[in-house]
């Protein structure tokens, strides 16, 4: 079975084409185009316009790359939520159009779960705790009693959003994470910041405010260093707590912020200390990508999940634990 998946929850429009061979995920194509605002953060409508503009090109390139005939595609999947309304609707419209014109079934995929499933497919982990860290989302997810449950999450903004907002204030381009990572490497002095872990949840807005207050007093490299160390250790702590609670021995990373090498190092150390296994897919599949939507759509379809066209309405606030998991 070959599935074409469309990702479009936020800044990235991406198409992945995957097939299942010997029960393994084989990615035939994964083509992405990311919207980068000239200044400021993501403007949802601008991002959606970007997706409309680039969709035909991304589609053409992905078909070419995969070397499949478009009529050989068996299933169309798309990111149904959570995400920014205008972006979601754009991807959904594209998916419906494609499914109708190809006369193939359509299925809507939960974006957060797709991050987890592609991680499971591309690494050797089986039943991990996922630390999912991106611009809008920060969640600790694990499978229990028939569902992917959220054991911890941010109480205010996503970790990526925290980094981007700080970056914007100091004049870094979007996304700011990679630039902050570079600056942090030159930082030497740890400046004390609020450390906000509540049970298995985290909060970042207080840290962001504290960092902004430091701008006049401290070196920018030291602030970036302290910001990263504080936020990433909070994430390691809640991830560890979730592992202890669920008695799982694998930790998997997902989301764009997981490209950060220092975060990877911290989580790897945490895993080693408790003799657990650490898994991290390649960067291309950490950030938003169509392949994860295609792969999860394929799993859903194979497990018997079907959606009528009327059921493909987007869900901006779609929660991870709402999804019925029939394929595990």
């Amino acid at each position: 079975m070959i599935c074409l998946g469309i990702e479009g929850t936020a800044h990235t429009i991406s198409i992945g084409i995957v097939e299942k061979v010997n029960n393994r995920c084989n990615i035939l194509a994964n083509i992405s185009k990311m919207y980068k605002p000239e200044k400021g953060g993501i403007h949802p409508r601008e991002a959606a316009n970007h997706h409309v503009k680039f969709f035909p090109k991304v589609l053409r390139e992905s078909i070419e790359k995969s070397e499949v005939n478009i009529n050989d595609i068996d299933l169309v999947s798309f990111s149904i939520g959570p995400g920014l309304g205008p972006c979601l609707r754009t991807a959904a419209t594209a998916a419906r159009t494609l499914a109708l014109s190809l006369k193939k079934p359509i299925v809507g995929v939960n974006h957060c779960i797709a991050h987890l499933e592609i991680g499971r497919a591309l690494t050797k982990c089986e039943d991990p705790v996922l630390l999912y860290v991106s611009g809008g989302n920060t969640q600790v997810i694990a499978f229990m009693e028939g569902k992917y449950r959220v054991f911890g999450e941010t109480l205010d903004i996503g970790i990526g959003n925290c980094l981007d907002k700080f970056g914007r204030e100091i004049g870094l381009p979007f996304p700011s994470g990679p630039h902050i990572e570079k600056l942090a490497k030159k930082g030497k002095k740890y400046i004390s910041l609020p450390y906000s872990v509540k049970g298995m949840d985290v909060a970042f807005s207080g840290i962001l405010t504290a960092c902004l207050h430091l701008l006049k007093k401290e070196k920018i490299e030291d602030i970036c260093y302290s910001l990263q160390e504080t936020c990433f250790c909070m994430l390691a702590e809640v991830a560890e707590r979730a592992m202890a609670h669920t008695e799982k021995e694998e930790i998997l990373l997902g989301g764009g912020v997981a490209c950060n090498k220092r975060l990877q190092e911290i989580i790897r150390k945490m895993a080693n200390e408790r003799k657990a296994k650490f898994y991290c897919p390649p960067n291309e599949y950490l950030v938003d990508n169509g392949a994860m939507i295609a792969w999860t759509g394929l799993l859903m379809h194979e497990s018997g999940i079907r959606m009528k066209l009327e059921e493909t309405k987007v869900r901006q606030n779609y929660r991870t634990d709402e999804v019925e998991i029939k394929w595990r």
Binding site: Y195, C233, A236, I266
Partner: peptide, 16 residues
């Protein structure tokens, strides 16, 4: 002690 935390942060967190 948590090896993944830098020393300053580890000390502070555990003490608090």
């Amino acid at each position: 002690k948590k090896g993944y935390r830098i020393k300053e942060l580890d000390e502070k967190t555990r003490e608090q």
